Simulated scan of single mutants.
Amino acid sequence: MSALPVSAICAYDATELGPATDELVCLHPFTCPDAGPFRLYADDPPAFAVSGELDLAGEALFGTTLRRTLPLSATQGPIVIDGRGLEFVDHRGLRHLDRHLTRVGTTAVLWTESDLLRRVAGILELSSLRVTGPGE
């Protein structure tokens, strides 16, 4: 059960929606693998979960998605993001998320099992995003 106000199962005709299709597809946890570069969706107990790939190819869509979803989080303190479903994140994806969090005046903890992702985040010295995982 989600902590956010709406969860739904959708079916829609992508040819009718046009460019808005990508913005809808990335908000669903269950889509076909080629539907979009990433998925950012409500999850419980963390506020959000993110899966797929965060890289230059999806950067604009990721920014749009963050602007529309993060303000919905009613958590006190850092927003918790479950990143266990991430298959790939480049340094630009981490910096993009960090900059967006700074712009909206909040912080987040991205939980991942990837040692490499945690090391990259440490090198980047992010100000609003902390990347953590097992044993931390």
Rank of each mutant, 00 (worst) to 15 (best):
E59R: 15
A60D: 14
S7C: 03
T132S: 15
P71K: 11
E16I: 10
A49P: 08
R119W: 02
L116P: 02
A108S: 11
A49W: 09
D43W: 12
S2M: 07
E59Y: 03
E87A: 10
E16C: 05
G18R: 12
H28T: 06
W111L: 13
T64H: 11
Q76F: 01
F38I: 08
F88E: 08
S73E: 08
P19K: 08
L40R: 06
G85H: 07
A108Y: 13
R39C: 07
C26K: 02
T102W: 03
M1K: 04
L129T: 08
S114A: 13
T64A: 09
P37H: 12
A74M: 09
L126Y: 05
H96I: 08
R118V: 09
S7G: 13
T64P: 00
I9M: 01
G58T: 09
G93V: 10
L94C: 08
T69Y: 05
L56G: 00
I9P: 00
G85R: 10
Y12E: 00
T69K: 02
T65W: 03
A42N: 04
G83P: 06
E53Y: 01
D13L: 09
D82P: 05
D34H: 07
G85A: 03
C32D: 13
T15D: 14
E125K: 07
D22V: 05
T102L: 08
R95T: 12
L117G: 01
A8W: 01
D55H: 07
S51F: 00
T132W: 02
A3R: 14
F62K: 01
G58K: 03
R130W: 02
A8N: 03
D44H: 11
L40N: 00
A11R: 09
V50Q: 02
A42M: 03
